[in-house]
Write a protein that binds this DNA or RNA. Structure first.
Lengths: 196, 196
DNA sequence: ACTACTTGCAACACGAATGTTGCAAGTATC
DNA sequence: GATACTTGCAACATTCGTGTTGCAAGTAGT
């Protein structure tokens, strides 16, 4: 009944929670207005069990988003975002982020009423992102006349785009996709010897 | 009751239909799960009136998407997509498309079960797009090694991105936004003198 | 083995949204 | 001005999703 679990759950219950979160992501990614019933079925549990772990539908989605955000933050951290050479960090972080976004697309794309834990987590990721792009601009990798915020937005959009069509080009692995994102972000698709 | 209106509507009814479509776009853009009641209120009509013109909620959304698709197709046509010099056409079409997408964002972003009229319209737009990018590649504006489909996807993503944040940078007009899209698409955000 | 936790099942209450109908009043069109 | 269309209103049936509860059976942890 309580999503803000005060005392620790038993091991099997903990497993159930994760199963539900993953099933919910799968189901809602395909159909954002799917019912709790469908989610429960996909998770292989009864609907009442879902409600025992997540008081309301919204609580479930908040938990999903928090869970996904934590994974993204971890993925970014592991890319040594702030210490590694900026281009290396960018590439590595992109690959890591793609890994997360490919399996948690719904949660990551869903907007929530502000004030959540996920908001804080994601805003830290954004901040780290902006720092990195700042370093890249100082290093002369980015044009001096572009707005860093616009760079981040394009970056996010490219990652999103790559994830959307993962079904079509399933053959590509994360590294290939990351390369495509970074390459397109920096060089665009135009020929270098063309003006304007 | 029937969405596939066989006989023509009276002038005032026709106006009501358009009012409902526009209100629905506004309301659903802000909240995709808004009720028919909210849409009706926003349109300044009774809920029953909405149901008289659109049998079901889905019929309404289909009509919205068809309407928006037609407007987009018109906007693209007016850019003389196939006859004008490719770069000019690209710029002009972008500006026109942005105009439509800014006011019909929900309808354009909503996926429908295939087989609709809008599907056909939009696939023609996509085809025109691919033709244009093909011409641009032959002209040497696009790199020879990029996939035209990827180019189009990035192009769509950039347009989408620009539209999403229209609230923030409301000061920019369509031309400014179009320039930003085309510029970023072709050149990316990286410095030209940097390798990889 | 004992205890406490967890789950499935069945049943229920509740609210919200959808879609329908009949009728009266108003308005475009000829 | 007569006619047909359109709309608002009120009322209704129906369905669907949500959230709750009690109980019995099973399982983890000690």
């Amino acid at each position: 009944m309580t999503d803000t679990a005060a005392r620790p759950l038993r091991a099997d219950a903990e497993r159930t929670v994760r199963t539900i979160l993953e099933a919910a992501e799968r189901v809602l990614n395909r159909n954002p207005s799917a019912s709790m019933e469908e989610i429960a079925t996909a998770a292989g549990v009864a609907r009442t069990t879902v409600h025992r772990r997540f008081a309301t539908r919204e609580a479930l989605i908040v938990a999903m988003k928090t869970w996904a955000s934590r994974q993204l933050a971890t993925a970014v951290d592991e890319a040594r975002f702030d210490s590694a050479p900026p281009l290396v960090a960018l590439y590595q972080a992109t690959a890591n982020a793609l890994e997360v976004k490919l399996s948690w697309g719904f949660s990551m794309n869903t907007a929530l009423a502000s004030g959540n834990e996920s908001d804080q987590i994601l805003s830290e990721v954004v901040a780290a992102c902006d720092r990195l792009f700042g370093r890249l601009q100082e290093a002369g990798v980015l044009r001096a006349d572009v707005d860093v915020v616009w760079v981040r937005r394009v970056y996010y959009a490219l990652i999103h785009e790559v994830c959307e069509n993962r079904a079509a080009d399933d053959s590509d692995d994360t590294d290939t996709l990351a390369t495509r994102v970074v390459d397109t972000l920096l060089r665009g698709v135009g020929s270098p010897n063309t003006q304007l």
